[in-house]
């Protein structure tokens, strides 16, 4: 792509939660804002806006990434997965349901980021130890729960069964 001036719009084609989208944006707009304001997907939260808090964590081509540390134009050709894609209708997936059951959220602002981080971890290893979970979620901040219940939710046996099923699927 040739040099595009700062106030010029760039057309982006991308896939989010299995659906194709085309939108136009300035280069300076980060991917979290592009998801929220160009595509109306408000489940990805914007916290610190410089990569520290982890609230905007999403999955890009199956790997976790900070949506605030990618440009919207870098979504071109990517396969993106956000919280809007993880429940089936009104039925939460087992990881989300486990977060609810274990009180792993209060205000809920950090939750979509934690779910993205945990989803990636569970795909690699359906039965992580508490220590492995703690290390992996160290890039996500929660100011409500004190983290114990989040670790409980991720280590729940029903979640492990779900993750093993996903792995073999």
């Amino acid at each position: 792509m040739k040099r595009v001036a700062e106030d010029e719009l760039i057309q982006v084609r991308t896939t989010v939660n299995g659906r194709s989208y085309t939108f136009s944006t300035e280069a300076r707009v980060n991917l979290a804002d592009a998801l929220r304001y160009e595509l109306g997907l408000l489940g990805t939260k914007v916290g610190c806006e410089h990569g520290v808090c982890g609230a905007c964590t999403i999955l890009v081509d199956g790997k976790s990434a900070r949506a605030c540390l990618m440009l919207g134009v870098q979504a071109e050709g990517r396969d993106i997965s956000t919280i809007e894609g993880w429940a089936t209708g009104k039925e939460l997936n087992p990881l989300q349901e486990s977060f609810r059951r274990h009180h792993a959220l209060q205000c809920g602002f950090c939750t979509s980021g934690f779910l993205a981080t945990a989803t990636e971890l569970l795909r690699e290893n359906p039965t992580p130890t508490r220590e492995e979970v703690r290390e992996r979620i160290s890039g996500n901040l929660c100011r409500c729960t004190g983290y114990e219940t989040i670790v409980d939710a991720i280590c729940d046996p029903e979640v492990a069964a779900f993750a093993r099923g996903e792995q073999s699927a």
Partner: peptide
């Protein structure tokens, strides 16, 4: 906390990148 405005280029080769 939003990025300042900048022009943007996505070169396909190292040569193009260095020229830019």
């Amino acid at each position: 906390m939003k990025f300042p405005a900048f022009a943007y280029a996505r070169p396909a080769t190292v040569e193009e990148a260095v020229t830019l």
